[in-house]
Amino acid sequence: MTARILIIEDEALVAMELRFVLEDLGHDVVATVADARSAREVVQETDVDLALVDIHLSDGPTGVALGRELGQDLGVSVLFMTANPGMVRGGVAGTIGVLSKPTDEAAVQKAVDYALRRRQGQPVLYAPPELQLFG
């Protein structure tokens, strides 16, 4: 199942590595951006199925509000990827869950597969253990 994925991450090396992993899995990475404004522009111009969102971006800790906006208002499935999962411990409306960084390729693959299956309404029996679900 190929998806259009937006990476929202301010650390260039992390974003590049994530892009390589997702492309190796056959997904189309529509863009990698480092701030909330750029992410909004991409979503307005391009169909995005899934956004991987860091919490601390180049414009500050804007990821939580951005994730909520993408998920609730713009119809994008959202997974947070952060070294600070406690910042979203209570969950964020409109988003799926959080994957703690650092992580590995297998965890990313399982979390993305889970999110995409949910998006398509396919049955998902359980989430991967690395993914902390909200709600």
Rank of each mutant, 00 (worst) to 15 (best):
M87N: 08
E45M: 11
I5R: 07
A31Y: 02
D24T: 13
S58E: 05
S58W: 00
H27K: 07
M87S: 09
V78E: 10
H27S: 08
V108T: 05
Y114M: 09
Q44E: 14
D35E: 09
F20L: 15
G86D: 06
P102L: 12
Q44P: 06
D59R: 08
L74H: 10
G97K: 02
A127W: 09
L99W: 02
L70S: 07
A65N: 14
A3L: 08
A115L: 06
E45A: 15
N84Y: 15
L99P: 09
V108D: 01
T103H: 13
A115G: 03
I96L: 13
A107L: 11
E69H: 03
D104T: 12
V29T: 10
V21T: 15
L57N: 07
M81K: 04
A34K: 02
A93Q: 14
G60A: 08
V112D: 06
L131T: 00
A127C: 13
E23G: 07
L66N: 09
A115E: 08
P129T: 15
L133T: 01
F20K: 13
D73E: 11
D10C: 00
G91M: 02
D73C: 04
Q122K: 13
D73M: 05
V64P: 01
Q109F: 13
D104L: 11
E17W: 11
L22G: 01
A39Y: 01
L116S: 12
V33R: 11
E45K: 14
Q132R: 10
N84R: 12
V42P: 14
R119V: 09
D73H: 09
V88Q: 00
V33H: 08
A51D: 00
D73R: 12
V30F: 05
T32E: 13
L79M: 05
A65Y: 13
D10F: 05
V43Y: 09
A15F: 04
V112P: 05
R89T: 10
D10W: 06
Y114N: 05
R117T: 08
A15R: 03
R117H: 12
K110P: 06
V53P: 02
T103V: 10
A39C: 03
L18M: 15
E69A: 07
V30Q: 04
